[in-house]
């Protein structure tokens, strides 16, 4: 198997995720796009681990999964809080930092 196949797949997923983060209005959908980015990273980690014959790739992928779980938990809690305060989860409406 070619290492590059996996890396390019990761790159495609990453860029799709970036597009989702930038273009989506709904807060939950933005979080889903972040999951795509994290999975792209994980594919890279495991592929490099297999390529270099080191277990560290898998170990770090597992850490990333654990951190992703924490991120989704806190992220969804924030989305819920926004929804409760504004009756909407449209992230384009949240512009309190407007100069």
């Amino acid at each position: 198997m070619m290492l590059n196949n996996f890396l390019l797949l990761g790159a495609v997923l990453f860029c799709t995720g970036v597009y989702g983060v930038l273009a989506r209005k709904n807060g939950v959908l933005v979080l889903m796009a972040v999951e795509l980015i994290l999975n792209a990273v994980n594919i890279n980690l495991v592929a490099f681990g297999a390529f270099n014959h080191t277990i560290a790739g898998q170990v770090f992928a597992l850490f990333v999964i654990a951190i992703a779980a924490a991120e989704v938990g806190v992220g969804l809690a924030i989305v819920l809080l926004i929804y409760r305060n504004r009756r909407s989860i449209d992230v384009t409406e949240i512009d309190l930092m407007k100069g």
Partner: peptide
């Protein structure tokens, strides 16, 4: 957003192709 994503993909694809072309697992 689409433009930025494509730009990023172009950079990544170029770099990966440059660095790991032909590497076998």
């Amino acid at each position: 957003a689409g433009l930025v994503a494509l730009l990023l993909f172009g950079v990544l694809a170029y770099v990966l192709n440059d660095a790991f072309n032909g590497a076998q697992i």
